[in-house]
Write a protein that binds this DNA or RNA. Structure first.
Lengths: 229, 229
DNA sequence: CGCGCCGTTGATTCGCTTCAAGTAAGGTGG
DNA sequence: CCACCTTACTTGAAGCGAATCAACGGCGCG
């Protein structure tokens, strides 16, 4: 891992690409950027661990991050998969709590690190910022809710189909934000099961798979496969 | 369902028993109570539905509520089980969003209903209140995180054991906050499976079951059963 | 009383996990 | 540049655990 302290302008440009900060007036972003660090992380490197006091907010500007919890038996259950641009750990940092899970890069990434102090300073100054962060938290809650509702109900294939559609956003192609084994864990599956589910979708003519790239060949069929119990 | 408009003093007394409001100065609670309604709900009656604009905050002062989402096939997946005293829907009301799920009473309950307007008015006046509500939201997020981590990993019996221990809080006995079928859904199980899991724990000598009451006979054994994969 | 809902228990089925190979790509050190 | 290792992914076969189907007893309620 390399920590940089580049020109504030560079960091500010990165912040601008994060949805939460993009709407802010430029001076506010500059104030934040002034106290931020930039980190270049290799795949697998850890951003923070569960239980540590949440002193830093992370903005992923390039790459992808997985948030997970260790489970008995040396396994880990992935709770979130984030692809740049995304914010990690707004809620615990905002609340002065501990990190509720561990975060690691699932590919080499560049991350903007903002200290809790700096964030708090800016929060006091900018009345819009807390609302934006709360909005992000709400979204997170929404995602967890949906994820929880999806588990148990629905077959493996249906879950995978639904997940793919959720990432599609109308585009004809999508790049998985993490190695398949992490995607599998996120979906509550074993890697083998994900592999088989993708194979089933492929054989149904709904998608084409090449490494981490999924091409949508038949969105209607995919949606049908996602819908059935 | 019966809606009452009792003396504010009565409502204020109820509010005082809700953790979020208990620390407030009495005048603040009275101001809130003034615009609140009291509802007596039968088991099964609905507080709000997914997708409706979140105009009302609910405080359960007696009884229990389940929050769920409808799943394909006419089923429903329970996301939260709340026993009085508890608050429902702080986050969407605070954010001016829509209810992300549906809430219904799982037994006959009495509920304090506070309009978003009234809450907002009080929020503007009381600098401590938003933080308290945020804290509640964080707890909710925590619960969801844990719940999600528990699904998939762990066997049915282990999940049930872990769930029971989570509600125990040191007491030798606990009352399930909902009919067993709702508890089952919350744990991602079919009612039959919950029944079998409880039977297994009973046969292991860890607990005794009588209707909705669970007595802890051997906490050590229970914890051991909860721990294994 | 008779009906419906909840909960329990038994028998069976089905889907996912597990175990086991085997391929392919990337990294390292000789 | 190649031998070697590790890691990611895929596929096949077998086992198991929870879902499902079914029947029954208890209880509240009209």
């Amino acid at each position: 891992m390399k920590t940089l302290q580049p020109r504030p302008g560079v960091v500010e440009a990165h912040l601008k690409r994060l949805p939460v900060f993009s709407g802010l007036p430029e001076p506010a972003r500059e104030a934040l950027a002034h106290h931020a660090r930039l980190r270049l992380q290799d795949s697998g490197e850890i951003l923070f661990r569960r239980g540590e006091p949440a002193l830093q907010l992370f903005g992923v500007v390039h790459g992808a991050v997985r948030v997970y919890r260790d489970a008995p038996g040396g396994r880990q259950k992935v709770l979130h998969l984030l692809a740049a641009p995304a914010l990690v750990a707004e809620v615990p940092v905002l609340m002065g709590a501990q990190y509720p899970a561990t975060a690691a890069c699932s590919e080499s990434s560049t991350v903007v690190v903002i200290s809790r102090q700096a964030l708090r300073r800016q929060l006091a100054r900018d009345p819009e910022l807390p609302l934006r962060l709360l909005g992000a938290a709400l979204e997170r809650l929404h995602e967890l809710t949906g994820s929880l509702a999806a588990h148990g109900e629905r077959s493996a294939t249906a879950r995978v189909a639904a997940y793919l559609m959720g990432w599609a956003r109308g585009q004809p192609e999508l790049e998985l934000p993490a190695p398949k084994k992490d995607v599998a864990s996120y979906l509550g599956l074993q890697p083998e099961s994900l592999s088989r589910a993708l194979a089933a979708l492929r054989e149904a003519g709904a998608i084409a798979v090449e490494d981490k790239t999924i091409r949508f060949l038949d969105p209607a069929a995919l949606s049908r496969l996602a819908g059935e119990s």
